[in-house]
Write a protein that binds this DNA or RNA. Structure first.
Length: 524
RNA sequence: GCGGACGUAACUCAAUGGUAGAGUGCCAGCCUUCCAUGCUGGAUGUUGAGGGUUCGAGUCCCUUCGUCCGCUCCA
């Protein structure tokens, strides 16, 4: 999450949004009848369809027709192919990727201040000769206020001091004063926080069969890079996309579905020549921002969405650039929470997997290298660079829900969901104005027709009970963009009214034009 | 993992240690020719779970699970 000084819109009530999501069947707590399970959430009927719509939109706009048919920075159409890789990979995949090392951070807690510190980040000021005798020594965290404060105290006690790692001191640390504590001896022994879930493959429970649930889908793509090259005719530059579930054993799942322990990612790894990678990075970064706006996060002039370029010191050593698409969630406002990261990863991952697997992953680019007398090129072998737009689909759903949630007490239906028609789980409602005089029959016929044509995109609902106002209000709450109503005139002139969710305004169109109308509105 | 707050119907919330309720929603029927506000009736709870104190616990105590806030974490 990051802060920004731009003008914040008044934060919506997260409690109201969560209540609506439960009430209307967007999101349920996982295993709710057993008391729930921390960090896991299920989708109800509307949520499941909505998330599918988001996933489909990503699949269509990133893989099947990338970037809406636009050319890339090389002047050619962007090319991408899909894969579907497994949650469980060979354990060495995660050693190569650095996750096995980096995901196991020992922590120490301070019993006095309740502070928690990365064990390997804690340093200690001790006397220069290393012998503190019976006196306490002073722990600190680099680059925090504790450093200067503890340095001052240490110098007062010992005069000349030096800094050593906490890990170099023998336990228990009875004479160590924790970074923000007053008294010595408050630090616990280091404890491991396993951020990757593990499991055992095979029937025999044996540590040697230990496997991990993936913390990201990306590695499955890198691991299959060579197969994709070898078994398709696709050429660099191109992308490989993958959607699927990942797991992170978050220390503190928080903020509704925002930080869940099980979540779905939509990741593209776009491979290109090193010389072109900076251009592709900028291209994808800008397109991804544009895409989120196009599916419904562009409200308020897009003011709740920002593209945040990482500072140089935030970047991994191999990266030439990383940006986050961030949304101003009600629980992060006035700050922002990450929806998607677009990272220039260089050839780090392919290099790692090549080294660990001992399999050559170089690409033979036959369109580069010196021109030969026969008119062909000598070719150039290289490890492609990679640009990675990695989106969180569950976070996307949550952002779209937060953005869509609208409270307007001047409306008959004060709470409604302003979903983009492409994302809305319910695409249309078909109602008889009153439940008699032949109207229900006409409505049922139109409902059947629309259902047959649009079931791939979402639900078409119908309802003849209660007043028309109540039925419109129900549709507003579900975020259904259009309602078609059969009234007395329909029976004589074959027209229906179309009600627009956001304005409440109506127009009449021919009943035979309804499918065409809807089709046009649902297009990307 | 620590500290704090909270947990009652599908939702929002009441209930002095003394018979678990309301509004909304939902269902049925009636009435209804365009925006939840017309009428009648109906269903729904082991008060998150488990234990304890008490003649009696939604209420007090303990344990546990979950949610929210802060710390921490966010590779």
């Amino acid at each position: 999450m990051s802060e920004s000084a731009s003008t914040p819109t008044p934060a919506k009530s997260m409690d109201a949004i969560m209540a609506l999501c439960k009430r209307r069947g967007f999101i349920y707590q996982a295993s709710e009848i057993y008391g729930g399970i921390n960090g896991f959430w299920d989708y109800g009927p509307l949520g499941a369809q909505m998330k599918k719509n988001l996933r489909d939109a990503w699949w269509e706009d990133m893989i099947m027709r990338p970037c809406w048919g636009r050319n890339g920075p090389d002047g050619h159409p962007v090319q991408c192919v899909p894969v579907e890789t497994r949650i469980i990979q060979h354990p060495k995949v995660w050693e190569a990727s650095g996750h096995v090392g980096g995901f196991n951070d020992p922590m120490v807690d301070c019993k006095e201040t309740r502070g928690r510190y990365r064990y390997d980040h804690v340093s200690v000021f001790v006397p220069e000769n290393g012998d503190a005798g019976d006196k306490p020594v002073f722990a600190y965290m680099g680059d925090t206020p504790s450093e200067a404060r503890q340095r001052k105290k240490a110098e007062k006690t010992f005069g000349a001091i030096k800094s050593v790692a906490l890990s170099s001191l023998p336990q228990p640390w009875a004479r160590v004063i924790a970074p923000d504590a007053e008294k010595p001896g408050s630090l616990t022994e280091p404890r491991m926080f396993n951020l990757m879930f593990d499991t055992i493959t095979g029937a025999i429970r044996d540590e040697s069969n230990k496997a991990y649930l993936r913390p990201e889908t990306a590695q499955g793509i890198f691991v299959q890079f060579k197969n994709v090259i070898d078994t398709t005719r696709i050429k660099v530059p191109f992308g490989i996309g993958n959607t699927g579930t990942s797991f992170r054993n978050e220390v503190t799942p928080r903020n509704y579905t925002f930080r869940s322990r099980e979540f779905e990612q939509a990741e593209l790894e776009f491979f290109c020549h090193p010389d072109e990678s900076a251009d592709w990075y900028k291209f994808w970064r800008d397109f991804r921002m544009e895409w989120w706006k196009a599916i419904g996060l562009g409200g308020d002039g897009g003011g709740n969405l920002i593209l945040r370029e990482h500072e140089k010191d935030e970047l991994s050593h191999y990266s030439q650039g990383t940006s986050d698409v961030e949304y101003r969630f009600p629980f992060t406002a006035p700050g922002f929470g990450e929806l998607e990261g677009i990272a220039h990863r260089g050839n780090y991952d392919l290099t790692q997997h090549q080294a660990h697997s001992k399999v050559k992953l170089e690409y033979n680019d036959t369109e580069r290298g010196e021109l030969l007398p026969n008119g062909s090129r000598r070719g150039e072998k290289y490890l492609p660079h990679c640009v990675e737009p990695a989106a969180g689909l569950d976070r996307g759903v949550l952002a779209l829900i937060c953005e869509a949630y609208t409270k307007d007490d001047s409306r008959p239906s004060p709470e409604f969901m302003k979903f983009h028609p492409r994302i809305a789980p319910v695409k249309a409602g078909v109602f008889p104005l009153v439940n008699k005089d032949g109207m229900p029959e006409v409505a049922e016929k139109l409902h059947t027709e629309l259902s047959r044509k649009f079931w791939r995109q979402g639900m078409i609902e119908t309802d003849a009970k209660q007043t028309i106002g109540k039925r419109y209000a129900r549709m507003d709450e579900a975020g259904c963009p259009f309602c078609f109503t059969i009234d007395g005139d329909t029976l004589t002139n074959q027209t229906v009214t179309v009600r627009d969710r956001d304005s409440g305004q109506q127009q009449r169109i021919g009943i035979d034009k309804v499918a065409g109308f809807l089709s046009e509105k649902l297009a990307p």
